[in-house]
Computed example of a mutant assay.
Amino acid sequence: MDLTTQKEKETEIIDRVFFIAGMLGVLVVALCVIWWKVTGKSPIPPVPPCMIHAVTGIYCPGCGGTRAAYALLCGKPLLSFYYHPIVLYTVVVGAAFLVTQTIGRLSRGRFRAVVHFRPAYLWIALALVVINCFVKNFILLYFHIPLL
């Protein structure tokens, strides 16, 4: 087996794992939204306050993520991006991956414009988290303006 074939096989396995995990994630979110709309009650218990923020007074790298997810579920993508850009980024990249993978699988490979998993997506996500944390803490500590 040559290196190209082995790399393609590894990519196929990784794509399959992420595809299954992504579809299960979509199913869970869909069921939670249906539950929320039918009963009027959130299927997720209240999230406790951030301990890092409570103890240190600064934002942790994940601060704002829950608010961002809630804003996105309420149809407010700009507010979601303001709270934490990683949520919107994950949804956009994940949706592109799942849609193109689904079309590629249904077309049995005739559709070639399929988004594959790339480590660069994770590096971009990490950069978003670090930049978000730095900017929000800089504004909080330097200008004394709480953003969350």
Rank of each mutant, 00 (worst) to 15 (best):
L78W: 15
I131K: 09
P85E: 03
V115H: 06
T39S: 10
L24V: 12
A127M: 12
T102L: 06
Y59W: 12
F143H: 10
A68S: 14
A125I: 05
I14V: 12
F111V: 00
E8L: 13
C50H: 00
A71D: 15
V129E: 12
V93D: 02
H116F: 04
I52C: 06
L88S: 07
H144W: 10
G40A: 01
C50T: 00
S80E: 05
Y89T: 00
V38R: 03
T66G: 07
Q101W: 01
R112H: 10
N132M: 02
G104W: 00
V92I: 15
R112W: 04
A68K: 09
L31H: 06
I52A: 02
F19T: 05
D15S: 03
P48D: 08
Q101S: 09
F81A: 09
V99K: 10
V87W: 00
R16S: 13
V28S: 07
V92M: 07
V29I: 14
V38C: 04
I58G: 03
E8Y: 09
I34Q: 11
L141H: 06
Y83N: 07
G57F: 04
I103S: 02
L72M: 03
R110H: 10
P77W: 10
D15Y: 01
A68F: 04
M51P: 08
H84C: 01
M23I: 08
K41F: 14
Y121V: 02
R110M: 02
R16M: 15
F81I: 10
T100L: 07
F138C: 07
L78Q: 08
R67Y: 08
V38F: 12
V17F: 06
V93G: 00
V33F: 11
P43Q: 01
C32D: 06
E12M: 10
L73D: 04
G40W: 02
